[in-house]
Design a protein around this nucleic acid. Structure first.
Lengths: 295, 295
DNA sequence: GCATATCTTTAAGTAAAACTGAATAGAGGC
DNA sequence: GCCTCTATTCAGTTTTACTTAAAGATATGC
């Protein structure tokens, strides 16, 4: 009757991958080992955890109920191991998801400072767009997400975090860069460089700037912020990005930032799953994030 | 590196029994199995959990740190099993400790009502004196304790619970029983029947009644409340007990309760260990206790 | 529609772990 | 010293966990 952590590890992997085959890869086990461990767990609990249909697994109500509990139990067993590993050293893995701008421009400095103050070194940074971050939080594969733009998701909590200024940039020789006080009207009829759909930066432009312009043209779409900066520096169009992302390019005079009449701001958000257990390490990291000023 | 629940079960048993031999009995395992499982756990954690001295085990700082964590992990794994056992049924074991009066006079009715409202049937009632209850709470063998008399113990929390009136009783033909308004002075020079040291009832007498009397004699000591009642009914002395414990004997006119000038009251207390994990079932029981009026 | 992937599960054999009984070693009581 | 109580070590056995191979089931390609 006694369930084992081994079985729960298998269950969580299968619940995340929704496939025996890829769960087996992840766990470095053979497929039958995973299949048998899972069906034994289901037998012990007296409940199916997945619906088997068309030779595929689909997590069911029972499985969804077990997932946070199993994840917590495993996390707590990890906590115990780490508590006793090296005396006083902060150990354990931290899986952080971040959207493009935050992941590339902010997270490196955030992690540098967290490492310096905590001594903790085992972080993984997963950079993807907001939608993917949310999905992986729901699969319990990420501990925390750092995203631009508010997220409305029933299973996730979001707390506002840091701020950011959004600016419009162009090539230094661009006519706009010569204006001492450009207006929104000057931004019309321009060629804009945008991120791909699903990106928080793109959403921001569409909702806060594009919506104010009677006309604008799409120069082209790029799924990388630095490619957008390079394209701006190459004179292919103008763009709206966070000041953080542009600071280096501006210092090198590769791009110019326009002095618009109003300041555009954007909040960042810390995301975490409502039902996911927060290990002491995770709590420490979240507190650190909340108090972190930027520089 | 991965620890197993099996190992933690062994560890907890050894920590409670402080002996490989009796832990093995408790777990229905051989001594070598327990010894090996424990030393493997210690090897995995990289820490001794017990000091070995003179062929005896003594839990050390590391072990004390692990005990509540291990207990919680095991309790949570039990929670998972029970959640999935019978749909909706309330399962899981509840280990309740109670001092003599509470265990004999109150707990049966408390448990009857809890069973009726919750449908939960797996309770164990361990009746012992307050000191023993505290010890077993500290060993994580009991979930909750019901005791008379305040307890000051660093590892335990106590919350006031119910109340009780303490009364003085004697044989119906005893001279004291003939007085319509006996005073404290009348109680002097009497022969008293007391419980053994460590009993809350005894402590109550010594602190609240005996201390007020310039003289009193010990008739003799008994480690059972009903033996004290019978001894009182047999005219061997007078006694101070809770009205609850005496109600039947009084109705049968086997003893008389004196009408003293002041009412002596005594609080009961709910005890639980600060670091012990409270399962949903335990929380439910505690809430039930707090709201339970008596009848 | 038949062959071919892809996926899960069953079966049989193997490797690993958990466990036992007997024996060993140390400590204390008589 | 002898007996009894510990915990642990050792060697052998049982049980569990796992792997490879194969089968069954469902979809995909031609």
């Amino acid at each position: 009757m006694n369930i084992a952590l081994r079985q729960l590890r298998v269950f969580v992997a299968v619940a995340q991958e929704l496939s025996i085959t890829s769960a087996a890869d992840k766990l470095c086990l053979s497929k039958p080992a995973v299949s048998m461990a899972l069906s034994e767990l289901e037998k012990q609990l007296g409940q199916q955890l997945f619906d088997r249909h068309n030779n595929r697994l689909l997590i069911n109500e029972q499985g969804r109920r077990l997932l946070p509990l199993a994840d917590e139990l495993l996390a707590r067993s990890q906590d115990i191991e780490h508590l006793f590993s090296q005396q006083g050293a902060v150990t354990g893995k931290l899986n952080i998801g971040a959207s493009d701008t935050l992941g590339n421009q902010v997270a490196p400095f955030l992690l540098r400072d967290f490492r310096a103050t905590s001594g903790h070194l085992e972080q993984t940074l997963y950079i993807a767009n907001t939608a993917q971050i949310c999905q992986r939080l729901c699969e319990f594969e990420l501990d925390v997400g750092l995203v631009e733009g508010r997220v409305h998701h029933g299973e996730l909590h979001s707390i506002p975090w840091l701020g950011d200024e959004m600016v419009v940039a162009c090539h230094p020789q661009h006519p706009l860069a010569q204006l001492s006080a450009p207006t929104f009207a000057d931004l019309e009829q321009q060629q804009w460089l945008l991120r791909e759909p699903g990106s928080g930066t793109r959403e921001y432009f569409l909702n806060h700037l594009g919506a104010r312009l009677s006309q604008w043209q799409l120069a082209f779409e790029l799924n990388s912020t630095s490619a957008i900066i390079n394209s701006t520096a190459a004179g292919l169009g103008i763009t709206c990005l966070s000041r953080r992302a542009l600071s280096q390019a501006e210092q090198l005079k590769r791009v110019s930032i326009l002095n618009l009449p109003i300041t555009l701001t954007r909040d960042y958000w810390l995301l975490y799953h409502k039902e996911k257990y927060q290990s002491p390490l995770l709590k420490q990291f979240m507190r650190f994030c909340e108090n972190w000023s930027g520089e």
